[in-house]
């Protein structure tokens, strides 16, 4: 059991991490680099729009990208451990884990770890203004936990009371609301920030669905 858990988590996490790292490097890192140019003042937002943009290209740094791959694999292996632990626990309770069901498990993880927190605190670019770090982290962790409990209550609940309680728990973090700064006005153009937030959610969705499918697949393989 333990061996299967560990191997499934390592394989699934590594595979999903590599997919996410590739998407991040090609879709998100260029936007981070551009935002850093605004942050450092090399590009200025709201300057005379008719003036020609200085021709500055951020350089692609392969050491930096290597670290992104390493970190993506690490964090997705962390997600994968929680995913296979949850799948194994559900299986102990009589829930059948199929590779196809892995899609739904992945979507649930995506909802808890990325979508719900993003409703309060969208993925940020460097140079954006935000509330104090610790306060944001507390809200994020609280939202993740509440969303996991809420989804579990709705999915595995047996009656209206379970479903009702699940929905209430899902709503609580958003009723409380995420910590936001007093005033707005970062250095990054809103067009860039909006696209980054949307792309971050898309990359996360691909990553989490891959993670769910592969966790279920490797878990089943090991159970044979």
């Amino acid at each position: 059991m333990l061996k299967n858990l560990v191997y499934s988590a390592l394989f699934a996490g590594l595979a999903a991490g590599i997919i996410v790292a590739a998407l991040t490097i090609f879709m998100l890192v260029p936007m981070l680099l551009e935002a850093e140019l605004y942050e450092s003042g090399m590009l200025i937002h709201l300057s005379d729009a008719t003036a020609a943009m200085p021709d500055i290209e951020a350089e692609n740094d392969w050491t930096r990208n290597g670290l992104t791959v390493l970190y993506a694999a690490t964090i997705y292996i962390g997600f994968a451990f929680m995913m296979v632990a949850a799948m194994a626990f559900a299986q102990e309770k009589g829930v059948q884990i199929t590779t196809r069901a892995g899609i739904l498990w992945g979507l649930a993880g995506y909802g808890a770890f990325q979508l719900a927190p993003a409703m309060g605190l969208a993925a940020e670019l460097p140079g954006m203004i935000a509330a104090e770090l610790v306060q944001r982290q507390i809200w994020q962790i609280g939202t993740i936990v509440a969303t996991i409990v809420g989804i579990a209550a709705v999915v595995f609940g047996k009656n209206w009371m379970h479903w009702g309680i699940g929905l209430v728990i899902l709503a609580i973090p958003h009723v409380i609301g995420a910590p936001h700064p007093e005033g707005l006005g970062g250095t990054v153009p809103p067009e860039l920030a909006a696209q980054f937030a949307a792309r971050s959610l898309a990359v996360g969705a691909v990553g989490w669905i891959s993670l769910g499918v592969m966790s279920a697949y490797f878990w089943r393989q090991g159970n044979r």
């Binding site: 670290l67 390493l70 927190p117 969208a122 940020e124 971050s200 996360g204």
Partner: peptide, 14 residues
Amino acid sequence: TAHDMRHAIGFACH
């Protein structure tokens, strides 16, 4: 180390 990925997955960074 984590900077770019943390931003990418939306974990609070700085």
